[in-house]
């Protein structure tokens, strides 16, 4: 499959290209030399079993996403249990029995994956860890480990956002820019934060420019309305227009407003008491 790279590669981007279990193990070992590769292998085997047959929207086997997230987490210098939890972070969506991960891999990893699913990411984490994490990622706090997996998950989803449907794409990009990127910077993961910001801005930017054109058309349209009503309708239409995510939907919206404008103008000029005929 052809891969288009539209964004400058970042320090973590290289792990996205062809994440393999060997690559993940090597990355973990480079920061934690005496770590047990067997644990990572078992976690990978579990993830492979339960995600077998599942595919990403891109058509890639689902396990590539698990590996990519684990690779990002490993590059952040997180210890082996956190990388295992990253490999298994979506396993609860599969037929995997609830106690299975705790039994096969360990309670800590199982608790981590459960925490990743329920964690609420906030733009301003309250635990006040700040830049501590960058220096201390090899022995992160529980909250930082959970957040790192969530951020890595979002980062890989943003890297492959081209495969998402347009409506969700804009929503995810907005949320990434407003919540995930600031959260990453707040805990000292600036490289992740910057990449999230770049990826999200690239999605949101084109929408803003073509949106400006349709907004101008709507402004001209309000000239059909009684002068004291123009400002309100222009504002109302542009707000509704801003809700639409595709250029096509915006064009259709504007066209229909154009077609309905004479009728609206008539309505606004008619006294309220008059029965419509």
């Amino acid at each position: 499959m052809k891969r288009q790279r539209r964004f400058p590669p970042s320090s973590t981007a290289r792990t996205d290209l062809a994440p393999t279990l060997e690559g993940v193990i090597a990355a973990v070992r480079s920061y934690h030399p005496d770590s047990d590769a067997g644990l990572l292998e078992r976690a990978y085997a579990e993830a492979s079993i339960w995600h077998a047959g599942q595919r990403r929207r891109s058509g890639d086997p689902y396990i590539t996403h698990c590996l990519a997230v684990a690779a990002i987490v490993a590059e952040l210098r997180m210890p082996p249990p956190v990388v295992c939890a990253a490999l298994l972070h979506d396993v609860e969506d599969t037929a995997c029995p609830p106690q299975r991960i705790a039994g096969q891999i360990g309670q800590e990893v199982a608790d981590l994956t459960a925490a990743v699913r329920t964690a609420v990411v906030s733009a301003h984490p309250q635990n006040g860890e700040g830049a501590m994490l960058a220096s201390d990622a090899a022995a992160p706090s529980w909250e930082t480990a959970v957040l790192a997996i969530r951020l890595a998950d979002r980062l890989h989803n943003m890297r492959t956002i081209a495969f998402m449907d347009p409506a969700r794409r804009l929503l995810k990009a907005r949320e990434t820019l407003d919540v995930f990127a600031p959260a990453a910077c707040a805990v000292g993961l600036e490289s992740v934060g910057r990449e999230l910001q770049d990826l999200a801005s690239a999605v949101l930017q084109p929408a803003v420019s073509s949106y400006a054109v349709t907004t101008r058309i709507l402004a001209v349209l309000t000239l059909l309305l009684p002068s004291q009503r123009r400002v309100r309708w222009q504002e109302e239409w542009s707000a509704d227009l801003a809700t639409l995510t595709t250029r096509r939907a915006r064009t259709r919206f504007t066209l229909h407003v154009l077609l309905g404008a004479p009728r609206l103008s008539m309505t606004l000029r008619r006294p309220a008491s008059q029965e419509q005929r």
């Binding site: 309708w233 109302e236 239409w237 707000a239 509704d240 809700t243 639409l244 259709r252 919206f253 066209l255 229909h256 407003v257 154009l258 077609l259 309905g260 404008a261 009728r263 609206l264 008539m266 309505t267 606004l268 419509q276």
Partner: peptide, 23 residues
């Protein structure tokens, strides 16, 4: 509800909704 939301709920195009809402 806002106008566009009602377009979707009622299954009507934008140009139809706003005059009705105004009325």
């Amino acid at each position: 509800r806002y106008g566009l939301e009602l377009c979707e709920l009622a299954g009507l195009p934008s140009g139809t909704i706003y005059p009705i809402l105004a009325r």
